[in-house]
Amino acid sequence: MTHIKVNVDGTTYEDEVEPRLLLAHYLRDRLGLTGTPIGCDTSNCGACTVDLDGATVKSCSVLAVQADGSEVTTVQGLAKDGEWTALQRAFHERHALQCGYCTPGMIMAARDLLRENPQPTSYEIRQALEGNLCRCTGYQNIVRAVLAASGQEAPAVAEEVTA
């Protein structure tokens, strides 16, 4: 067992963990933070995306021991005092989810993009979300939600597919 100390969504936790424990399992099974789902076993789907020290990671591809001393933000740590962020509101208002399984990862990945690039084009949004799969194929509305969250109107569909 290895001792770790991790700040998750503003709360500091200290635990003894097996080195093989994945961060995704630590968040879900030890801390009960089930807002971060696990979608695949191949690092492809991005559903488990969280923020680790200011950058997105797929929490199924990080060991909990690698997060020792770090700050983790999950989708559950975004709202402040029950108030959604603009990005979360945009996903809700623009119907950017159907089953919702990919949504936590989509929101974390989009948040990462908007920090680096507050006014992305549709093309840049698609590039930034390439590691996140939506099997309801709701990509059009996801891109529109990210545009809306950045204060931009969604262009007509024909313009969207090009840069």
Binding site: G46, T49, A55, T56, V57, K58, S61, A109, E130, G131
Partner: peptide, 9 residues
């Protein structure tokens, strides 16, 4: 290479 989250790590 891969995608942004993988490139972060």
């Amino acid at each position: 290479v891969a995608d942004p989250a993988v490139r972060h790590r």
